[in-house]
């Protein structure tokens, strides 16, 4: 197995690895900031909003790349159940990388906060001020955030099984090299 058809398109790979770093950083920042009342709280929150919005923009670009570039086929000998799990988990990952920042933006809007990207630059609200809506969206942002982390753990585990045990080209299709 070799050649361009067995790899994700270059833009897809670039986006995948850039966003992998950003999303993992966002999960650590999010969990870290709510755990503390030290100066790290406002400092991390100030990074959290613009990084989150950057992820939203990149995710939309990535969706466009995904719809216009055919991904390499999964190995023919992959059991159907695993192939289905791969498909479903990838849909969920896309859904979460778009939904998480949208929920963040929507909840800050509903909470009556200025959605500050950086000092002096605020985004327009995407929901009217409604404290109960804030309450539910804030809870959803937390729950989905931790679900996102678990899903990513499963995804990385599966990728490493492909790369280290099955050595079937799936890992290389995204990494560009390796098993």
């Amino acid at each position: 197995m070799n050649g361009p058809d067995t790899l994700f398109a270059f833009p897809a790979r670039l986006l995948h690895w850039t966003m992998a770093v950003l999303i993992l950083a966002m999960l650590f920042i999010g969990a870290g900031m709510v755990s503390t009342v030290s100066a790290a709280y406002p400092a991390l929150l100030a990074w959290h909003r613009p990084l989150g919005i950057a992820i939203l923009v990149l995710a939309l670009v990535r969706l466009a790349v995904r719809l216009t570039h055919r991904p390499p086929p999964l190995p023919a000998d992959l059991p159907p159940i695993q192939a289905a799990a791969a498909r479903v988990s990838h849909y969920l990952l896309y859904a979460l990388m778009i939904a998480m920042p949208l929920i963040g933006w929507a909840m800050q809007s509903a909470g009556g906060y200025p959605v500050i990207l950086w000092k002096g630059v605020a985004l327009f609200p995407i929901l009217p001020h409604d404290i109960v809506a804030y309450g539910w969206l804030r809870r959803l942002h937390g729950l989905l955030g931790y679900a996102f982390f678990l899903l990513i753990l499963g995804h990385v585990g599966a990728a490493l099984v492909h790369g280290l045990i099955r050595r079937d080209g799936v890992f290389r299709s995204m990494a560009g090299r390796g098993g």
Binding site: V37, G135, R138
Partner: peptide
């Protein structure tokens, strides 16, 4: 920063409680 974090915790609790 402690006020900011604590007000936010209070706000998210009272928000979902209504």
């Amino acid at each position: 920063p402690a006020r900011s974090a604590a007000y936010s915790a209070s706000f998210r609790r009272r928000a979902i409680e209504g």
